[in-house]
Design a protein around this nucleic acid. Sequence first.
DNA 1: AACCAGTACTGGTTCAAGCCAGTTGATGGA
DNA 2: TCCATCAACTGGCTTGAACCAGTACTGGTT
Lengths: 261, 261
Amino acid sequence: MSGKDLPSRRIAEELRRRIAAGEFTEDGKDGKLPSERKLAADHDAARNTVREAIRQLAEQGLVDTHHGKGVFVRRRRQLLRFGDRYSKRLREETGVSPYRAELAKQGLTPRVDCPSITRVSPPSDVAERLGLSETDSTVARRENWYYAVGEGEEFPVQIGITYIPWEIAEGSVLSYSADMGKGSLYARFEDLGHPIAASREEVSARMPDPDEAEGLSIPDGVPVLEILHTGIDDQGRPFEVTKFVIRADVGGLDYTVPVKD
Amino acid sequence: MSGKDLPSRRIAEELRRRIAAGEFTEDGKDGKLPSERKLAADHDAARNTVREAIRQLAEQGLVDTHHGKGVFVRRRRQLLRFGDRYSKRLREETGVSPYRAELAKQGLTPRVDCPSITRVSPPSDVAERLGLSETDSTVARRENWYYAVGEGEEFPVQIGITYIPWEIAEGSVLSYSADMGKGSLYARFEDLGHPIAASREEVSARMPDPDEAEGLSIPDGVPVLEILHTGIDDQGRPFEVTKFVIRADVGGLDYTVPVKD
DNA sequence: AACCAGTACTGGTTCAAGCCAGTTGATGGA
DNA sequence: TCCATCAACTGGCTTGAACCAGTACTGGTT
């Protein structure tokens, strides 16, 4: 046995069963569960006990609650898979960014927002990867928000914060313009003598902090993937670090890496 | 403003501040917070309100609760970073597995448990990646649990479930023995004519299901990384799929991938 | 038709109380 | 000395009540 026989668990278990059976989602139904007060009466339990059960389901990502409306079965969206983001061939042949291509597979269109470009001191993890001193150097900081638009809804997918050593970015569009022109970011780096040759990606997962949860409208019980990406040029020099934060309920990663002998 | 001014939020906020200030962890202290009943009295609030505040902290991964003992500040462990797991050179030169090497950096020793080797029908995602029919084929299923041992404590890190087409595993140690001999798994695949040449890794993050949470003793508010790994040989044939589930509070990934022109 | 107010729902938060269950340390007997 | 017992903690769970806050519909007024 893996769980104790408590009222809240029993109620949660029963709701899980009914959700799996499609009781709330079949035909014309909108996925709405009975109200907390009704469930409490049905199970002869206190409303707080039902709330505890629903909290367990929400934590598990099975339902969403909406104040004033009700509790709804969360419909599973197929994950977007991001990989191969830097290939020059892709960049030149298809003319569309990998982000756009992946969204297109699911009938979605991207919207990217670049709310700020600033000049700052690098955070310590970024400075370390760029081989810079944390205090004696500055970097250009470009913040990008990625959204997906489709079927009358728009939702945020990921945030990317790119740090570029100031001595590289200085004078280039990288340091001041949201629009980076044909071929986008990595074409500009190539112009500047840093063609991307390798990418290091350090991947972690964690719960979003409250600001991220709000900004990315992340439902309860959904973690984020955090990727610390370092761009490395043909000389082995790191020239750019980007910190991605991806909603794990809408996005994942897909790497195909050759294995070295 | 990002949060409402509710009693439970205020209490959580104050505890966050005191935790950050090191009030519970400095010098000889063991990181224990005041009891729920004491906090309730101090803040002139109901015990349930304090519990709600503590639940928020636990969800955020700041504290652990222990029934009968108290609430403790969670000490952050440096993440283990797994990458480059398949290199033949590493395998032959160092003689130690990458898993062992990464743990050694932090003064930990691995323990690996192989509780079961069975013959089953492949799950659909696995069958798809191996190019098999879900119903007309069988695979060897090897389940491995990875633990870290150090300083009088042992904790689980990840689970790996490896699926191998039966026609490949049949007759080999892969199909029946926990001990795979010198060079381990990928050396055996090489013996069988499938030297690993590339690895595809599909990465997602999610909350653990209740069984995983128990089996991996995952604290509240900690997600897992799920990696669906496909081993590909020098002919481009997939010969093995492993599903890893990693506790995100102890482990992450580290890929360095060349960028194709 | 357009608007607004009222009302009856929904979940969100807090309260005070009680009992259950795991942990710890003191007490006292063998 | 050793060990069982007990008391006094700790958090875990449930109850039932009250009130707040967001939503949607209804009916009346304009």
